[in-house]
Write a protein that binds this DNA or RNA. Structure first.
Lengths: 347, 347
DNA sequence: TTTAAAAATACAATCGATTGTATATAAATT
DNA sequence: AATTTATATACAATCGATTGTATTTTTAAA
């Protein structure tokens, strides 16, 4: 920072007033005469005064900053969530500090430390795939700093979560695949320590049971759901003696990777030989041919809701919640990747 | 912020030492005995001391924070640039505050104000489409706060820019389209106040001239390059009495929208009837069928380079540059959307 | 005009660290 | 033991704002 930046003291000296009066004037306190206020604001403008929020924050014991930790900023779901968060935060006068964990536990811990040192007033997080311990989050709870999880939540931590109904949504997607006449539905699952993947898996399994299909563990492929995982997963599944006729992937990335692999390296076609459904409605889902059936999970909306909730908690307008789960609507978007020819439909 | 948070004074009281000693011990100053340091660090840990960087920053007149303003966080190019920025910044101990301008001038001004008030030590920006005045940036330059533009730069401002060679890259893309046998190449251009679009347009025009093709202004469609612009643009171009046989779009978004429109609402096919090329290599470019020929412009790399540069300027290791332009390599990625059947190729 | 009440402004402490200077303690030198 | 020198720690100001209390000025009431 450059020295010589103008402060309220400079304005005070200039007008032979006290800095406290300047401060009050600039904050429109009724304790300063209207006329004086005008003079002060005038001089402030002339001198090019810009408030130093750090100083104010130190004094008022606030930071007007919320911290966000996401696995990857450049994943569409997260960047749109951040967009929503930023939107709400700025409209309420909060800054946003963003960190990415790269889905690694160690980085998440370091991020949490940084945010704490910066005295963020609240934290929004979608936890890393690697995370199985949660002490780095506990410190916020202990200090009374509100936390809100979104999407990937950690029920062990006493904070509320904004999620979609993963279980039921997965159930519906699976049911849809079954209704299209599929019998052997495979599933790409994510790391089991993350609830959303567990829930999606359970919804998938329940649907199979309810519709009288056999659940075959061999058809479940667990991975980190990256592109290479999608490729490896579909390769594996297609090499099975009794290959699946449908695939429900826990994210779009892996689903699309699988579809690309199928069309480029096999003779099968989607959806005729293998129906595919993903999760998240990433932009690519509508671009790939055939269009990918998926679940619309608005990152922007979830981000907004989570940020609103967090700020309410910060302001004390809502009690800090303990394990409450806020469910955001999600809906299945059916595209061509899962719609078999009418003839094959189950009546 | 909660009261009762432990400070160096609490540690001092606890050990009957002065807070200055605590401060020095925690910063590993040689002025404190090794043994005392150990005791202090021990007690700090026991009491759960966490430094308050705001207080430290106020005293040291730094903020260890850099500000970023991008049009849209959720655009892949920008989110990956942010990812690169964040990467470099954190490794050098800087926090990143992110704002989005939504491509609106007013928001960009408000963002700049916020960042200034937060005493960021430097600014990274890709300017909004609407921006034609630059005073809100000048304030940083005047105060000696380094700025670095990336991608969308403002040459009027005395700061350096990290860009790709838009002119030459556009030239090469156009040349590629010409070599594929196209005669009438249309162009989707962005707002003329943004240099990158001007440069791309000029590169396109120059290539036409060099290869002896007529430049027809009717084939240039200027817009904000959103999805709806892509649709409107291609509709317009195809309705022309003498329709184009190729399209070079200044971004992928509009190019893909056009391709989708062509395949869904016309009888033309890409690339046979109309070759298409985009710009930026967004993830969707590799997913759409046929694959979109485009320019790989690594957001992550540009972000990293810009952040590195900015931090060097902050540290005074490099002079604040005035209008220097750092060109990052970019390369054309040729996919099927621009490759006509061999028979049509120009020899 | 005097006095009480209200309004406007000044004083001074504070937030939590950092840092130059001063002092106390320990070690080294004669 | 006395004195110098080095080491360790304490004191106090500071960063730029905010805010409770005190004081001054103005206005209204008696």
């Amino acid at each position: 920072m450059k020295k010589g930046r103008v402060t309220i003291h400079d304005i005070a000296k200039h007008l032979k007033l006290d800095s406290s009066t300047i401060s009050r004037a600039l904050n429109d306190s009724p304790r300063v005469k209207e006329k004086t206020k005008e003079r002060i604001k005038q001089v402030a403008k002339e001198l090019g005064y810009k408030p130093n929020v750090m100083a104010a924050n130190l004094r008022t014991q606030t930071s007007k900053t919320i911290g966000v930790i996401v696995p990857w900023i450049s994943r569409y779901f997260f960047s749109s969530a951040i967009s929503g968060i930023e939107e709400v935060a700025y409209s309420k006068g909060y800054n946003v500090i963003i960190c990415q964990s790269h889905d690694e536990y160690d980085r998440e811990v370091a991020n949490a430390y940084t945010l704490f040192a910066n005295r963020v007033e609240g934290i929004l997080t979608s936890v890393a795939m690697d995370t199985v311990k949660y002490e780095h989050f506990e410190q916020f709870i202990e200090e009374g700093i509100p936390m809100v999880f979104f999407d990937r939540h950690a029920p062990e931590v006493k904070a509320c979560s904004v999620v979609i109904d993963d279980f039921n949504t997965a159930y519906k997607v699976t049911a849809h695949l079954i209704k299209q006449g599929n019998d052997r539905i495979a599933h790409f699952s994510g790391p089991g320590n993350l609830n959303i993947y567990k829930d999606r898996f359970n919804g998938y399994k329940k649907a199979l049971e309810d519709y009288g299909k056999v659940f075959d563990p061999a058809l479940v492929f667990e991975s980190r759901l990256l592109i290479e995982d999608g490729i490896e997963g579909i390769k594996h599944l297609l090499s099975l003696p009794n290959r699946p006729d449908a695939l429900f992937s826990s994210n779009d990335l892996a689903a699309i990777a699988a579809m690309k692999y199928i069309s480029q390296h096999t003779e099968f076609s989607v959806p005729e030989d293998i129906s595919v459904a993903g999760f998240s409605n990433s932009p690519s889902a509508s671009i790939i041919e055939p269009g990918l059936t998926t679940v619309d999970q608005s990152g922007e909306e979830m981000g907004k809701i989570a940020a609103k909730r967090l700020i309410d908690e910060i302001k004390g307008e809502i009690d800090k919640c303990t394990n409450e789960i806020i469910t955001v609507n999600s809906k299945i978007i059916v595209r061509e990747s899962s719609v078999k020819k009418v003839a094959k439909l189950v009546k």
